[in-house]
Design a protein around this nucleic acid. Structure first.
Lengths: 124, 124
DNA sequence: TCGAGACATCGATGTTCGTCGATGTATTTA
DNA sequence: TAAATACATCGACGAACATCGATGTCTCGA
C-alpha cells in the first residue's frame, strides 16, 4: 500500500551513484511515444473553440449533416478558415466528408468521439 | 426524415435576399463561444504527446503519485519543461499538486478525465 | 460553351506553443 | 548558518497554428 512512499524514501538515500534520484519504476508501462503522438493529433483537433463548435453544430443539425456555408455565419469566420478547420477534423477521423453536387456535406464519424472518450476513461 | 435535405433545397432557391445561402437553423443550440473556449482549454492540455505520457505515467504509478524527477528521464525532457507541462495540466484541472517537503507530488484529479470524456460522448 | 456558385488550396502574417538555459525560492542536511 | 537538492519562474528562440485574401477546381444552369 505504501510501496511508492517507501521506495521514494529509499531512492532518497540511494541518491549517490548517478544523477538519477527517484525511482525509475515507470516508463515501461507508459504510453509509447508513437501512440502518444497519434492521440495528441486527435486531441489537437479538439483543442480549438471553433472546431468544437463545428462538431456541436454538425451533431445537432437535423440530419447530422452540414455544409460549409452553414458554418461561416454562426462561427463568424471566413470560408477558407472554415474549410481549414473541417479538413483538420476530417484528417483526425472525427468527421466524414461527402461531396454531393456543389456542396460538401460533413457528418460525425461514427464512434470516433466515443473511442476517444474511452481512451480517457480507461486511463483513469 | 429528409427534413434537412428538403430545407437545403429550399435554401437553394431562397438564395436571393441577402448573402446567407444555406439554412440558418443552427447556431441557437450550438456550443456557446465561452463554453467552447473553456472546453478547448482543457483539450489543449491533452493536445501534446508529452503531456499525454505524463498522465499515463502518473496514472500507472504505484500510488498514482509522481514527482517531477520521475518524469524527466522517461520523457527525455529538461526539468523546466516538465514543470511547465505539469503546470498546464494542473491549471486545466487534470492533475493535483501536493508539495511534501522538497518534492512535489502530482496525482490525477478525480473525475476530471471522466467528465471530459462525458462531454465527448454526450455530444455524439 | 460560358458564367456563377461552393468549396479547396496557396501564400502571407500575427499569435501561440514547446523547449531550453539561467535564475529564483524553499526545504533539508551538515 | 551554509551548502545542496527539488522545483518553479523567467526570458528567449524556433516551430506550429489560426486567420485572411487571392486564386484554383469542380459542378450546375443558362
Amino acid at each position: 500500500m505504501t510501496t511508492a512512499t517507501a521506495s521514494r524514501a529509499l531512492a532518497d538515500t540511494a541518491c549517490e551513484a548517478e544523477a538519477a534520484c527517484c525511482v525509475p519504476t515507470h516508463g515501461q508501462n507508459a504510453l509509447e511515444p508513437a501512440e502518444a503522438n497519434a492521440l495528441a493529433t486527435r486531441f489537437k483537433a479538439l483543442a480549438d473553440p471553433n472546431r468544437l463548435r463545428i462538431l456541436s453544430i454538425v451533431s445537432s443539425s437535423a440530419e447530422a449533416e452540414t455544409c460549409v456555408c452553414d458554418l461561416t455565419e454562426p462561427l463568424d469566420l471566413g470560408q477558407p478558415t472554415v474549410s481549414h478547420h473541417l479538413k483538420i477534423l476530417v484528417d483526425a477521423g472525427l468527421l466524414n466528408r461527402e461531396k454531393r453536387g456543389v456542396w460538401a456535406y460533413y457528418s460525425l464519424a461514427p464512434n470516433a468521439l466515443d473511442s476517444l472518450a474511452a481512451t480517457l476513461t480507461q486511463k483513469a
